[in-house]
């Protein structure tokens, strides 16, 4: 029973959120902000695996998000809707989107993980600044490739994902998107937590602390790096797929270095190597962005300024390598630790 306490609490919160959405107790704007929070949690925690736990500097996370966003959107549009690009829906009607939507998201995650290989394979030979440049290049490769494929809208972008959401709502009218965001965000946090909590996953931390020692003392660094990069980019891909369906319109301009920087800010704000820090900062940062909206473009002066202040006075971030349960030991009863 105690073992599942944290899960039960999470499910209760999910249920509460879904009921609130269902009853429309909150206005549509706040609902969308909440969905962004969920997506940002996935993005920041997945990037934390690379930037925080592995100590590499990946600044192209938006590229993987783009791959996921486009894959999920294309699959869903092609399968379930009649659109100008794909013509009639392929072989199955819109009503099946209810079951197949998560499947398309997982496929999107796989595609993003495959693109993650573009970073993972060079990471065998380079690290640090050089790898950072490679991640930047991958971000641009993805963005420019999408811009140059006219069939999917090129630079003009791609829309119509609303139809998929509407198709799902036509079958059963519940807030499907929020449900899937909650489900995938929860799953990815659990997956990441279990991964970095296992001795196998701690190989990632060993690489950060001392790669030479890791390699000589029996860690298969290539395989560990491969898994870490693919896991991280896969989760980013799923987040991208959800993002596309929340907004209903995607264009390559959304997934630039600007977006990558936003994700990075969340990771550094939350603290390197702290999953609860990433979750906390994703919530804080998304809410802050919305509150600063009246400042319009000036928020992009203010937020980097905040980053400078953060780096000067608390470079380890809000949580800095600790989890929430380290700061508030009382929380431990929700997260029973393994005893061997």
């Amino acid at each position: 029973m105690r073992h599942y306490l944290s899960l039960i609490v999470y499910l209760a919160i999910c249920l509460l959120i879904i009921v609130i959405f269902q009853q429309n107790w909150l206005n549509a704007y706040i609902q969308i902000v909440m969905m962004f929070i969920g997506i940002n949690i996935m993005l920041s925690s997945s990037l934390n695996l690379i930037n925080g736990y592995m100590g590499e500097f990946s600044c192209g996370h938006a590229g993987f998000m783009a791959v996921g966003a486009y894959t999920a959107s294309l699959l869903n549009m092609g399968l379930f809707t009649t659109s100008s690009i794909f013509g009639r829906s392929l072989f199955i009607g819109p009503q099946y989107s209810v079951f197949l939507f998560p499947v398309t998201l997982i496929i999107a995650g796989f595609c993003a993980a495959l693109v993650g290989l573009l970073v993972a394979v060079p990471s065998f030979r380079t690290r640090g600044d050089y790898l950072a440049i490679i991640t930047l290049a991958v971000n641009y490769i993805v963005k420019s490739s999408i811009e140059n494929i006219q069939e999917i809208g090129g630079a003009r972008g791609f829309m119509g994902m609303r139809q998929v959401v509407n198709a799902m709502n036509n079958v059963i009218n519940i807030p499907w998107l929020m449900i899937w965001i909650l489900a995938f965000a929860g799953t990815s946090i659990i997956a990441l937590k279990r991964f970095v909590g296992s001795t196998y996953g701690k190989g990632v931390i060993a690489i950060r602390d001392d790669e030479i020692a890791a390699e000589i003392m029996s860690v298969n660094t290539q395989r560990v790096k491969l898994i870490a990069f693919m896991l991280s980019s896969g989760i980013a891909g799923i987040a991208g797929g959800l993002f596309a369906h929340v907004i209903g319109y995607i264009n390559p301009g959304t997934f630039t270095i600007m977006k990558s920087t936003e994700i990075m800010v969340m990771v550094y704000l939350g603290g390197m190597g702290s999953l609860s820090g990433s979750v906390l900062s994703a919530v804080l940062f998304t809410v802050m962005l919305e509150f600063l909206r009246p400042l319009q473009l000036f928020k992009w002066v203010l937020i980097p300024l905040l980053l400078i202040i953060l780096m000067l006075f608390r470079p380890e971030g809000l949580m800095g390598n600790r989890e929430l349960s380290d700061v508030f030991p009382g929380l431990r009863r929700f997260f029973p630790s393994k005893e061997y």
Binding site: T199, Y200, M217, S218
Partner: peptide, 15 residues
């Protein structure tokens, strides 16, 4: 971690 090479499970088992 130094026993990493004889870890008899994959990362999927951990997840």
């Amino acid at each position: 971690i130094s026993q990493h090479y004889r870890m008899g499970y994959s990362f999927m088992d951990a997840i």
